[in-house]
Design a protein around this nucleic acid. Structure first.
Lengths: 386, 386
DNA sequence: CTGTTAGCGCGTTCAA
DNA sequence: TTGAACGCGCTAACAG
């Protein structure tokens, strides 16, 4: 007497066969209707089908379709760290592009664990995604397809993978790091620390660090040639340092920070009074005159910048910015709030382009591996005021 | 003479049939091997299968499996706003739980657009996910299954959906808002603004606002009864206001903020000198003595708090915290950095529990709808110093 | 224009 | 212990 004999709930969704029966026709016509081949259907049949679908609340099973045609419109999106605002922003672009291209992104978050990344990559191939966008962690996998080779089509975001020839889209790291470094030099800083996470494995970090050093070296060369104490009237050749911060280990991080701390404290002893006078009521540094003796810290990305800011605040109090200038690649929420200068990445575009590239590969485009390097934008704020 | 006749790339993955042939057996045995029914396989056959799989780098097709068994281990995760750190944190918990339960989350980001949400929900059912976790925006959908009814199993996160009886897990909003309000009262604030996004549609916002008002009312009652200017020695009854901020519209937001601004400026005129004296060199408020005349702003969540902080900083300069105290539900990165007091949500647990609930439903648990309300944790920082 | 047939890759009877 | 045959829901050839 009960409605359905099926134990409980889940009233088993209608299938194409059900619809065919309901509409009094064959499955083929339904399939044609679903795929928009309207020209091959009499208006009358079409109406009946429409009605049947409506009545049964029918929704085609993507899995089955995928199985048959060999493509499921799924792409994998492998993310190293969702905690990084950069990642979320890139994701926006990815979603928009997927939407536009009729793709469905499977988002996988490796949470900075190489093992997770490996597992997810395997899972993705198991679901037969048509391609993957990889913000790599440690993929050395053969799983990924080198342009034109076997494996699954992949495009890289932000970081390249050693030995893998593939499309890559991301920030123009060299230009960005140079932009930041030059900005600091122009603003008169003479003691600059580039702070970055362990960068052997991550190409973008490597490139940024290299560009920083190169720019510092070039500057030093120019100064030396022009003779020390040149026409600029500032403190002469600037000194650059690279500091590696292993954020995964809090204790180690704190230890590493002792070095720049010494520099900061030394600098502030020298010019303590000068600096204090230069500070306006708002708690911001007054600028150039003091910058020659103020130390500048250049964070390679937002997570590093955050860690630095927290440390500096804890050590030097709320007015820490009067003693240190902080500049960062990436432009997180709190940058505006705390007034630090940043280099904003075109994150949305990065994500969008990545999907476009992948889509082309999936459709069989055969060009050789492409690099899409997008420029960063310098957002000057109070921290590096001149 | 070329390796494969197939046009290019994509060397078509091995299927179960290939493996069977390679191992010199039938598909059934392979299937059994894959499903761990080892007891039904002779060690010898097992070894051959193992080898064949290895050799062909075979990976079972989840889609096909799902089609056959009627379950694909996929669950949908519908997110209202990935930009909100809350969301990302919940996601961590979700991922961990999925990992543990052998589920694969399909993450969909509605980016605060109701239309997107609707589309994704439809897409998810199209992929036949076994259930969904919904951080709802405006779902009024019949798509979701009310506990024990038709539709697809769902558990709600943070927000309930009008008219939908379902499991829900999230912050204990009433307790949290009361906790925050009480904290402000205890710290001597007598002019408190609760700031929240339009809350008709979002249950958590509604609850928080109601609890705020209730707590303020209770306090006022107590004061009045005890006679004004009671033994506490502070300014007597505190006034509470609710301000609605539509973050989607910048101009409107700015306009709305004029009201509290007037209050802030009035309060500071009255006690300008007192306040200034009370401020220490670090730029932090000295505490209670000044709090009776300082206004406090209670943000209903992190996005609101950020907007407020940006506005206040723009209007009152870097030392804005000497004029206003900011308290927020949610505990974003920058809270520690800027020293504002917050109520941290047990985000990881929320995500984890949500998946557990969903998993149970999928497995057919039949209890009535459950509410899982987790407590928030007050993180006292300098902004509400006493 | 329409229906019939044969798989896609896999799990599951059911016999052997 | 093993394998053959059937069908999950759908699309694509091929007839009518």
């Amino acid at each position: 007497m009960s409605a359905t004999p099926t134990s409980r709930s889940a009233p088993r969704r209608a299938t194409i066969t059900d619809v065919a029966r309901e509409a009094g026709t064959g499955k083929t016509s339904i399939s044609r209707y679903l795929n928009g081949e309207m020209s091959a259907l009499s208006p009358e049949l079409r109406a009946r089908i429409e009605a049947a679908i409506e009545r049964l609340d029918y929704q085609p099973n993507q899995m089955a379709r995928g199985l048959k045609r060999g493509r499921n419109r799924l792409i994998g999106m492998l993310l190293a760290d969702l905690t990084n605002p950069y990642t979320v922003e890139v994701l926006q672009g990815v979603e928009a592009a997927c939407h536009a291209l009729g793709l469905m992104p499977l988002i996988c978050h490796a949470a900075n664990e190489v093992e997770m990344e490996r597992r997810y990559l395997q899972l993705l191939t198991t679901y037969r995604v048509e391609g993957v966008i990889v913000n790599a962690l440690g993929v050395r996998e053969e799983t990924l397809r080198p342009v034109g080779g076997g494996g699954i089509p992949a495009v890289l975001v932000d970081r390249s993978v050693d030995g893998l020839v593939a499309d890559i889209v991301g920030l123009d790291n060299r230009a960005a790091a140079e932009l930041g470094t030059r900005h600091l030099l122009e603003r008169g800083f003479r003691d600059i620390w580039f702070v970055v996470q362990p960068f052997e494995q991550v190409s973008s970090r490597r490139l940024r660090e290299a560009a920083f050093r190169e720019t510092m070296r070039a500057q030093a060369g120019a100064r030396t040639q022009a003779g020390s104490g040149g026409a600029d009237g500032d403190g002469g050749v600037a000194r650059g340092h690279t500091l590696v911060l292993n954020l995964a280990d809090a204790a180690q991080t704190e230890e590493s920070l002792a070095e720049p701390d010494r520099a900061i404290e030394a600098a502030n002893v020298t010019t303590a009074t000068k600096a204090k006078e230069a500070v306006d009521a708002a708690g911001h540094p007054a600028g150039a005159p003091g910058n020659a003796s103020r130390v500048a810290v250049f964070a390679a990305n937002a997570p590093v910048a955050l860690r630095l800011a927290l440390h500096l605040k804890a050590r030097y109090g709320a007015a820490w910015q009067t003693r240190v200038a902080l500049l960062s690649i990436d432009d997180p929420d709190w940058a505006e709030l705390t007034g630090i200068t940043t280099i904003r990445q075109p994150t949305y575009d990065i994500g969008y382009r990545a999907v476009e590239f992948l889509h082309e590969r999936i459709e069989g485009v055969q060009t050789s591996a492409r690099d899409c390097l997008l420029p960063g934008e310098l957002m000057v704020r109070a921290s590096t005021a001149s």
